[in-house]
Design a protein around this nucleic acid. Sequence first.
DNA 1: CCGAATTTGGAATTTCTGTTCCATTTTGCT
DNA 2: AGCAAAATGGAACAGAAATTCCAAATTCGG
Lengths: 271, 271
Amino acid sequence: MAEPGAPASVKEFEERLLDVALSLPKRLKQCADYVAANIDRIAVSTVAEMAEAAGVQPSAFMRFCQIMGFSGYSEMQRLFRESYVGGWPDYATRLDHLREMGENSGPRLLAEFVDAGRASLENLLNTVDPTALEQAVEVLAGANLIHIIGLRRSFPVASYLAYAFEKMQVPAMLHSVAGRLDSTSAIRPGDALLAVTFSPYSAETLDLVELVRGRDVPVVALTDASVNPLRKLGAVTLTVSEVDFGAFRSLSATLCLAIALSTAVGAQRRS
Amino acid sequence: MAEPGAPASVKEFEERLLDVALSLPKRLKQCADYVAANIDRIAVSTVAEMAEAAGVQPSAFMRFCQIMGFSGYSEMQRLFRESYVGGWPDYATRLDHLREMGENSGPRLLAEFVDAGRASLENLLNTVDPTALEQAVEVLAGANLIHIIGLRRSFPVASYLAYAFEKMQVPAMLHSVAGRLDSTSAIRPGDALLAVTFSPYSAETLDLVELVRGRDVPVVALTDASVNPLRKLGAVTLTVSEVDFGAFRSLSATLCLAIALSTAVGAQRRS
DNA sequence: CCGAATTTGGAATTTCTGTTCCATTTTGCT
DNA sequence: AGCAAAATGGAACAGAAATTCCAAATTCGG
């Protein structure tokens, strides 16, 4: 029953996985990736479930098990069922557990930020006005070229938006102040500006918004709840309030809105 | 399928168990007692195994399941399997359906991404190894200068890290390939490299990791759970598994980990 | 102590899951 | 481009597990 080369522990299993993963054809690599990311599911799932979740046929998953050194799925599953040591605590208890750790230890901070992030996401659905969101999608989908600006803390968001648009082949341009190369003349009628800014608002961003409004270019703003100058300038404003922990603000909610926005724009363009 | 009076959570199950346990005949009481003491086995055992361990016939155990309000063992087991994996529905297929249905309105997408983000964050606590995290903090806190690299999809994360370190006055340098200005000679002994990369891994990042490993500079990698080449190169690896669906990858969990990591490093430096 | 009701054991049945096999497609090489 | 080898998808098969059913055993009231 126990194959000669079969991993005898979860650790051995992981090592084996690393070994073989790189030289695997497409479908089998999918299995390896899914298993790596969801290793704890093996104990409680059927082949059919695993295969579907990995996006392959059950037969492909079987082959994967055999490559890992087992006679089949059942044998592989046995390894994980046996090493299953009583119910993993649920999210809440795990969180509590991590919180009890040392003051500023990494795990402790992680628990706090995860919690803050979750709270932010929950809030997000309440604070974002659906009408404004659809309006924003409309504006951006109708633009020839989408200009994106976001500096300092907002820069990660801005760069993510640029990446997402590029992926969906939506014409977009990321403006930055690197090297003081303004590219303001690239912003032309028919375009739109997507500005990301949070208090304290950077002057460069506000200046740019003001400038393009003067050229009748529509502006969509991703910003926080405080009353800010952007609304006055006639921007479609999407409000995000992040729950912060300590002095640091997670960007979970902001990025989530950014993905939703860019995906919606991409979808609308296509149709 | 779902019986009207069936427990919908492990908690409800336990309550119900207490209720019925006293008024049970001998064999069924045995079942109740064994289940009470080994509640976590339900997820990974067959009826036959449970029955034998409880010292009864399978049919007796079946009757016990029915008394607990389920249609049979399978239904009871499903409750425990689902609670074990923290049930995150299959977002890949869900988004697939969304796309097929042409349901791409902004608000609808936002709700989906919020949900996916929340699940990712919960999962983060499972996938990140606390020991590895502390090790990573150790390595980075001890470095003279922290070099950060992350391209394409990982660039937002890398730039966020650079911003956070700067805010905390931790010496850090963001490497980019803009203008093909490699700054590899800036990486010197005593420094550390923080690499952010997700499948498909960019060659530039892998090359840089390999290069600095040759100089005995320690590497911390923020990456996904897919089996990847970084581990082999001796990097401290922090794994995040997030829902990946083409361009639609949320970065909620990744950024959360990034903040926790950078904050912890900042705190450790100060002390 | 007898008889009805309840509980129990175990075999028969059915459903579902793991596994295998082979035709078709894809990949890699000359 | 054409061929051989490898990989893949899907359906058919085998096996194991859940479930049911009923006869035998036990319990309990009279």
